[in-house]
Simulated assay, not measured.
Amino acid sequence: MSQDPYELLGVSKSASADELRKAYRQLAKKLHPDLNPGNREAEEKFKAVGSAYDLLSDPEKRARFDRGEIDASGAERPPQNYYRDYAGDSAGRYQNDAGYADMMDDDILSGLFRRARANAGGRDLRYKLPVEFLDAVNGATNRVALPDGSTLDVAVPPGTRDGQILRLRGKGEPGMGGGKPGDALVEIEVKPHRFFTREGDDIHLSLPIGLAEAVLGGEVRVPTTTGAVAMKVPKGSSTGAVLRLKGKGAARPDGGRGDQYVNLKVALPDKIDPELEEFMANWAAGKIQNPRAGMEA
């Protein structure tokens, strides 16, 4: 069972939007994976705190959670069972007004039931929509195919997460009589990207750099989810060094964006140049260096 989002953020149910935002930012800074390398528990809580803030920072979702219509993950709660749901031994008995005869003593109750049935709302319908990684990060309009052969255009907001459910009002099953139609609940399935990954609102990228760029430093072009940008590589950079591009991550509910973290990976040429090979053979300082110092058993 998902933990209560108010408890996760450490706020009361009457907390204002500013109080929610302040609590989330404090926890996110404390639990961020970069500050807790290898701490699986902190990483899982970081994700849980992000999901809790996503839910409570959306006024509509927060109201629906407070009313018990959705759970902490944003999923619809099962509807309450009514008397007719327990009438399995009387198949079809409550499909018309006669079936309610044992519950009615006068015409007033009978009329109430007839009107309720005549104005029954339509059911919510569930769909799954595969979305490209960049469309989920930047926002897009995608089309979902319906069972009857028609299509439905779905506006995917910037920053949409894998597994997030979008509610399209009035796009579900038609109601009866004057009843309102149900809603379409669209679960997003974000496709993996060939070199970007996402953790919370941050984007991660492994970037190969040449030996000369690693030793001498310099400016390189780095792909981001919104286009390539220039980034300075410090002199003497090694594989595993991580550089941050501020504000180049996924969109946040508060209007900001996460960051992009670039993990450098030094790549040697496919074919070693004779001049480089000769230099390395005669490089005395290189022979003295022991990058595995301290790893002896």
Score class of each variant (00 low, 15 high):
Val229Ile: 12
Val131Ile: 13
Pro269His: 01
Ala250Phe: 07
Thr226Glu: 01
Pro192Cys: 01
Glu199Thr: 08
Leu205Phe: 05
Asn36Thr: 05
Asp153Glu: 05
Arg62Ser: 14
Asp162Tyr: 03
Gly218Glu: 05
Glu213Ser: 13
Leu205Asn: 08
Ile209Ala: 04
Pro79Gly: 15
Val190Thr: 15
Leu245Thr: 15
Asn142Thr: 11
Arg21Leu: 07
Lys61Phe: 12
Ala230His: 05
His32Ser: 05
Pro291Asp: 14
Pro59Asp: 03
Thr197Pro: 04
Ala91Arg: 10
Pro33Trp: 00
Gly178Ile: 04
Leu8Thr: 03
Ser110Phe: 00
Leu216Gln: 15
Met295Ser: 08
Thr197Leu: 03
Gln26Val: 09
Ala17Pro: 06
Leu20Asp: 02
Ala116Asp: 11
Arg115Ile: 09
Gly92Met: 15
Ala17Trp: 00
Leu152His: 00
Lys61Asp: 08
Ala250Met: 11
Gly163Trp: 12
Ala145Asp: 01
Gly163Pro: 11
Phe133Gly: 07
Ser57His: 11
Glu43Thr: 05
Glu173Ile: 08
Pro79Met: 14
Gly99Trp: 10
Ala28Gln: 15
Ala116Lys: 15
Tyr6Gly: 14
Lys128Asp: 04
Arg292Glu: 07
Gly227Ile: 10
Lys265Asp: 04
Thr141Ile: 10
Leu55Phe: 12
Arg67Glu: 09
Ala250Tyr: 02
Met231Arg: 13
Glu69His: 06
Val144Trp: 00
Gly294Lys: 09
Val49Gln: 13
Asn81Pro: 01
Pro130Tyr: 02
Gly175Asp: 11
Pro37Tyr: 10
Thr224Trp: 12
Tyr83Pro: 03
Ser12Met: 04
Lys265Ile: 06
Leu112Asp: 06
Pro79His: 12
